[in-house]
């Protein structure tokens, strides 16, 4: 029997917190190193999602890295597929494949494609990268699980810019119809997209309101607060309703010169950038 998730609803003790913080820091460092090595990829939206993925993969989700295809595992779909560096770093830290493999990201013959590929990477539940599609897939997955009597939960992470895609609202409208209380959509609400702030590009007005009017239970959380994330992800939710967790995050989180800077959506990380970023992170880690 694969290991179960850490006891649901139990608060995190100091030991857990230290462990999760350590993982988040390690993942952040790996993200930066991977991006520096590949000289491609998306730093900003990877760093904003570190704590969300850490809390899911190291505390909340029922998974077994030794059996990536364990049928009863919880599922995760990275709809904002361009954040693949943080996804891969998380999976590597969790033991799905060796950390050394991260260096192959974006090279020919690598199992780590520019965007997640379920046919190549152990632990990736669904291919993604063309924005706007992940939530529909998760609605199908959650519905399929319910119909088959499976108890697993489905998590979908979207970007906030991605919520401009009409398909997201098609999917959002459909999940309540099917009573998918086994579905959690997490919006990495970092308020920036490739070309500027979401408010400049195409305001989504009241994001909580939009999700609520589509029929979802809506909660907001600080997306960098591991304790809060774990708590809200593990809390029981309204029966019969899907949960939209709007996670307030900072794009480029953890690296001073990347935080809230639009240009770090997809800028290569130079050797100098890497050094400075790792310096900052080790100071943080030492505190």
């Amino acid at each position: 029997m694969p290991p179960q998730a850490h006891t649901a609803n139990a608060g995190l003790d100091t030991h857990d917190m230290t462990r999760l913080q350590g993982e988040a820091l390690a993942i952040r460092r790996l993200v930066l190193k991977t991006l520096n090595k590949s000289q491609a990829g998306h730093p900003g939206g990877s760093l904003s999602a570190v704590e969300i993925l850490t809390s899911l993969y190291f505390q909340v989700m029922r998974i077994d890295p030794a059996q990536p295809n364990w049928p009863e595992r919880d599922r995760f779909v990275l709809s904002k597929g361009h954040a693949s560096p943080v996804y891969y770093a998380t999976l590597a830290r969790r033991g799905y494949f060796p950390e050394t493999e991260l260096a192959t990201h974006d090279t020919l013959n690598s199992r780590l494609q520019g965007h997640p590929d379920m046919r190549k990477t152990p632990g990736v539940d669904m291919s993604s990268g063309s924005l706007g599609q992940g939530l529909s897939v998760c609605v199908g997955l959650a519905l399929g699980a319910k119909m088959a009597g499976h108890a697993y939960r489905v998590y979908c992470m979207l970007g906030d810019g991605e919520c401009q895609e009409g398909q997201v609202w098609e999917a959002a409208m459909s999940a309540p119809k099917f009573g998918l209380d086994n579905l959690t959509a997490i919006v990495d609400w970092n308020r920036l997209q490739l070309m500027g702030t979401v408010d400049e590009i195409m305001p989504t007005h009241s994001l909580p309101g939009l999700w609520r009017e589509m029929g979802w239970e809506v909660l907001e959380v600080d997306g960098h607060d591991l304790m809060a994330l774990v708590k809200v992800l593990q809390a029981p939710h309204s029966a019969g309703k899907p949960l939209a967790l709007l996670a307030h995050t900072v794009k480029g989180k953890g690296v001073s010169f990347m935080e809230n800077r639009v240009e770090w959506h997809a800028k290569p990380v130079s050797g100098e950038d890497l050094k400075q970023a790792l310096d900052e992170l080790s100071q943080e880690g030492a505190q």
């Binding site: 669904m126 992940g134 998760c138 199908g140 519905l143 399929g144 489905v154 398909q167």
Partner: peptide, 9 residues
């Protein structure tokens, strides 16, 4: 998209 998810399940 839902069909893809159902196939996954």
């Amino acid at each position: 998209g839902m069909a893809a998810g159902l196939a996954l399940a």
